[in-house]
């Protein structure tokens, strides 16, 4: 499937945040969205999810404009993984994942045995079955992020939109989440994620979208886009990119600020 963003201009009332943005995401792609704070990465997500006003342009799935889709239809196609947060009530992890099934349920119906099974399967797929009966507010940030990914997968979407999936995670959990994301893309999902680390773009993305300071957007392969010059333009600091070889033989670019 193909998610096409064409000349999208969106934002809040009287304030355009994203101006004339175009790119496309296909099944199996991972687009890593980079850029400094406040250039509109989150607003772009809100635009894709129909949560802010789209002033002009369009978001299309396989050619069909999603503007008039119901929340349910949208939820079956595009799932959103927010940053891990603490809700006010102590739900069970399983209950949280079952919430992902809502789009497939009738408005007045309750989760069926099948919905529970699907929730269990996604927990198993992500290797977090041990969290099934834990309380969502009492598990660690990394675990909570995994539960939110499980909830999104329970929606059985074609595309995943992930808002800083590695934020607030320790180094090990960041790597674990990133490798899960790669596996998910390999299984056929199209993924857009934001990150504050250009390294993530090299590590797991097939495409990079880099917001520069002036809110213009560069799109292309990681090697094309994540260059010292572009990063400097985006973040306003000097950055070096160092090619290196990992112990598994993979050649990878590493970024580091020059300080």
């Amino acid at each position: 499937m193909k998610l096409e963003i064409t000349n999208l201009t969106c934002g809040y009332r009287n304030k355009i945040i994203n101006d004339n943005i175009s790119f496309a995401l296909e099944s199996g792609d991972i687009i890593c969205l980079l850029g400094p704070n406040g250039v509109g990465k989150t607003t772009l997500f809100m635009g894709l999810l129909g949560l802010v006003d789209v002033v002009s342009g369009s978001v299309r799935v396989d050619g069909e404009n999603i503007r008039d889709w119901s929340n349910k239809r949208l939820a079956k196609t595009i799932a959103y993984v927010p940053q891990a947060h603490t809700p006010p009530f102590a739900f069970l992890v399983l209950d949280v994942v079952i919430m992902g099934r809502n789009a497939h349920m009738g408005s007045f119906s309750k989760p069926t045995r099948e919905d529970i099974n699907i929730a269990d399967e996604t927990l198993e797929k992500l290797g977090i079955t041990y969290l099934r009966n834990s309380i969502y507010t009492e598990i660690s940030g990394g675990e909570r992020q995994m539960v939110l990914i499980a909830r999104a997968l329970a929606q059985q979407p074609a595309f995943l939109i992930m808002d800083e999936p590695t934020a607030n995670l320790d180094y090990g959990n960041q790597a674990r989440v990133l490798s899960r994301i790669k596996e998910l893309a390999a299984s056929g999902l199209g993924i857009i994620m934001t990150s504050h680390s250009p390294d993530h773009a090299f590590l797991c993305s097939t495409k990079v979208a880099l917001f520069l300071k002036d809110r213009s957007l560069l799109i292309g392969s990681p090697l094309e886009i994540v260059t010292e010059k572009n990063l400097q333009q985006a973040y306003g600091i000097e950055i070096n990119i160092i090619p290196s070889r990992l112990s598994n033989g993979r050649v990878l670019q590493l970024c580091t600020p020059v300080i």
Binding site: A79, A103, R151
Partner: peptide, 12 residues
């Protein structure tokens, strides 16, 4: 869980 999250989960 929050209005925006609920919307993305398909709740009107």
């Amino acid at each position: 869980f929050g209005d925006q999250e609920a919307k993305t989960l398909g709740v009107n």
